[in-house]
Design a protein around this nucleic acid. Structure first.
Lengths: 342, 342
DNA sequence: ATGCATGATTTGATCGTTCAAGTTAAGGAA
DNA sequence: TTCCTTAACTTGAACGATCAAATCATGCAT
């Protein structure tokens, strides 16, 4: 609290001007090596730290990156966002940035939040999660020339005008399906979300592809429903009852997979209510949430730490380095975490 | 992106001086009502927003609150921090503050992070989670006069020199135990953490108290172990095998409870490996994590949103209002979420 | 009338940094 | 010698807000 050391203090102690101190720190190449050393020694000795607010005033750059923190949606899939945020914060710190949080419920509230933040704190960039078709947020930012990356590809545009990083969901479900095929399963169903969501359609496609590769069709083998446990259970029951040949299910999320497990399991334990005795069915989820780990559910894991660091690297590259003209896209492969469920 | 409106722009348009605009916004009572209205109209019309950086330079206040984001510990209990952070962000926004994230592994790394942040971004305050005995972090901040609140009481000091908000863990386990008693259970065990952790000891105490109230002792009824699923399972097995009379277990966390469930359940489903057939045992967890909800585990729920908003309210009260001399403490009651497990 | 609070507004200075332009000294080419 | 270039460093101004002090009316008591 006591003292705040300013650049002028350092300059005085080192016997140079303010600007030379600034140069020694930010543009070393214009300062004589010996002078630079002397300045850096004094900086160290006095414990000088540049004041962000002052720097921001002059340069217009806040070294702040804004990201949304979600209320844990259904409580199961929510943890994805948190793992991502943690990775983001860690990488950001390493690159000299900090993560500023905001909340918003819906796209309109979020663009309003953009406006507020830009007016007051002037973050240098935004990181968006969960992109969807006709995402208003990206166009809002793009129109105003605000830098941003998205975790999630641009579903509506073939070649997006902005950078994105995403995980290859289709590759994930494809790997999951192949895994099940290799275990001898031949009739493998899919539990997903209603057509029209980019992410959901993508995950279904991976499953379809894997089956097609070995000459199997998908007719009557899938159900689409809301992303929660109860709907998942319902859909799974329906699917399994209509097709007694099905021995395995690939799911678009751990929530759905958990619902499926309630049906697919052998006569259930006392603390899981209402299970009809049923043949055992293998189940694979998506996201490798804590719940999956806890109950031994095989699941597709997204490399969230890498997604986060990639997002940040794309941003800082644009912010600090020359602003490369064409946007970059990055599609990372997920991995399958095999557990007892399949 | 185009234009940024400054206070000078507003002043010019409204035909007053910069200072009057500032006063109209920050000290309305010194400005004539009519003038104030005119200024506010112009503010609205031009879309003026105060620039935080400039304000911070002059006032020394950043309106930033720093909080740590954890890597999801064991993946199960981690979600507590995230729910808290979300609440914090939401309340902060309402009070004109923003949450700035940082990461740190261990107390020393965290105080180093304090130093970094204070030097560069000058957050007005810190919010700390998971306080423990002899917490280096609180003393570091206190010595330097940096405002902060902790989620978690000051375990080492009788009357802490700083504000804290906490959840009454003992009340939670007490309620859980009473609930089990009311269901007819008479021999109720406890699975907890090694003695010495404030939180863990507190939770054990609530269980003990509830049993004592109805004249029951606790000898041989509890086990202490590391906070994870496997140790929980191990400890539960040990406890249940040595005392065949036990019909229910209260646990210090959902992780432990999940381990206990692996033992306590009726002959397990195929996807949960290695279960010895066993008598059914009721289990209650702590934290009401997504996992608890997913598997139907009765659990003690902490009112995280209220904890977060209370933390923030205590802070802003001190930051904005007069800095009340004596610290305030707030102990909030948890609630029991009853599910199939007990 | 004069003086003097009081209310409403304005003026100049300042926070700590970096930008842009200026200065100084040294080295080469003419 | 004189001029020009370059390297190394310094000086003043500016970013956009608020603080502290100054100014200008206005009303009221003396």
């Amino acid at each position: 609290m006591a003292d705040k050391v300013t650049i002028a203090d350092v300059a005085r102690a080192a016997g140079v001007s303010r600007q030379t101190v600034s140069n020694a720190l930010n543009t070393p190449e214009v300062v004589r090596a010996e002078t630079r050393r002397r300045v850096l020694d004094v900086v160290e000795e006095l414990g000088y730290r540049v004041n962000q607010a002052a720097r921001q005033m002059r340069t217009g750059r806040s070294r702040l990156i804004a990201a949304r923190i979600d209320p844990e949606q259904d409580g199961i899939n929510g943890s994805v966002g948190d793992r991502f945020l943690h990775g983001l914060t860690e990488t950001a710190a390493r690159e000299g940035y900090r993560v500023l949080l905001y909340t918003a419920d819906g796209d309109d509230a979020e663009t309003a939040a953009f406006d507020d933040l830009l007016g007051a704190y002037e973050p240098d960039a935004f990181v968006l999660m969960a992109t969807h078709h006709d995402d208003k947020r990206t166009s809002w930012l793009a129109e105003r020339g605000v830098p941003f990356v998205t975790f999630g590809r641009a579903w509506s545009e073939p070649a997006a005008p902005h950078c994105w990083v995403d995980v290859d969901g289709a590759a994930g479900t494809e790997a999951a399906t192949r895994h099940l095929l290799s275990q001898g399963h031949r009739r493998i169903g899919f539990l997903g979300w209603p057509t029209g969501s980019g992410v959901g359609d993508d995950r279904r496609e991976g499953w379809r592809r894997a089956l097609a590769e070995v000459g199997l069709g998908v007719s009557g083998l899938h159900r689409e429903t809301e992303d929660d446990v109860a709907p998942g259970e319902h859909a799974a029951r329906d699917l399994l009852e209509r097709d007694p040949e099905i021995t395995a299910l690939v799911c678009a999320s751990d929530s759905l997979a958990l619902g499926a497990l309630h049906v697919a399991r052998a006569p259930g334990p006392a603390w899981l209510a209402g299970g009809h005795p049923h043949r055992p069915v293998a189940v694979v989820g998506f996201d490798d949430t804590p719940v999956a780990k806890a109950i031994g559910l095989t699941s597709v894991r997204q490399p969230l730490a890498e997604v986060a660091s990639s997002c940040l690297r794309l941003l800082t590259h644009r912010l600090d380095g020359g602003a490369g003209a064409s946007p970059e896209y990055l599609l990372l492969p997920p991995s399958l975490v095999v557990r007892a469920s399949g």
